[in-house]
Amino acid sequence: MGDFFKSTHFKILMGVLIVLFAFMLRASYTGGIAPMASQVLGFITTPLQQVSAGISDSLTSVFRKYLQADQISEENEQLKEKIRILNQQLVDYEKYKQENEQLREYLEIKDEHPDFEFEYASVIGRDSTDRFYSFTIDKGSLAGIEVRDPVITADGLVGIVNEVGLTYSKVLTILDVALEIGAYDVRTRDIGIVTGKIGLSGEGQCQLSMLPKDSGAAPGDLVYTSGFGGLYPRDIAIGEIVEIQTESHGMSQYAVIAPAADIRNVKDVQVIKNFQGQGEQVAP
């Protein structure tokens, strides 16, 4: 085996290792900006991922339709074909209706926050190793997306852009333990910090911590972003309180939150590329 360590092959592998190490150092230095090798790979794989995500969605839809048609055929064989066609139309109608409603809701958000600059994006990848439902979207720096841009759906906050390539971006969700979001209870105006918890992320929930001990927050209360810190715009829905507990040290309370957005199954999102107060400290 000693011969291997003196061989040209070993030197080449060491060279590759050094280059990869340099990439890693650069990635750690530049933060969320993807290194060149990642950008190139992303440029090649993003269209493939778009196609595979589309196929996956279509297969699910076809499978569902097939099951419906099978049920109907048991009831009335003669009308099966007609019902299939009607079902197809219904699926299309529902799809367009849903899209229309979604766009209307986005328009409402846009009306409420005229300073928002949106970029519509689709989810094209979810990594098998990620524990907090993070995902990759099909838009990147070419569309003007930058690291730390907030990501929302019509229902509420989803997360934040963590890494940007030319044609893709990676999004960390609000279920991730690495994120901390300034938030407030809409009814009581108590402020706290929303963060992911390992024990809650599996159930698709997160936590509002640092609530005052005498807080009147209760299940059913809505939690919105406070805008504090300038990372997220103020008054974006985060979720609804489902449970209130006292912290183990007894000094404050925390609330378990069910996110307003369906983070585990989100397919389309809006990235807020610009908003008033972005990057500035905003008083709570």
Binding site: F23, M24, A27, G125, N162, K170
Partner: peptide, 9 residues
């Protein structure tokens, strides 16, 4: 690395 949320490399 491209698909995951670890540092590139």
């Amino acid at each position: 690395d491209l698909g995951s949320y670890t540092i590139f490399g």
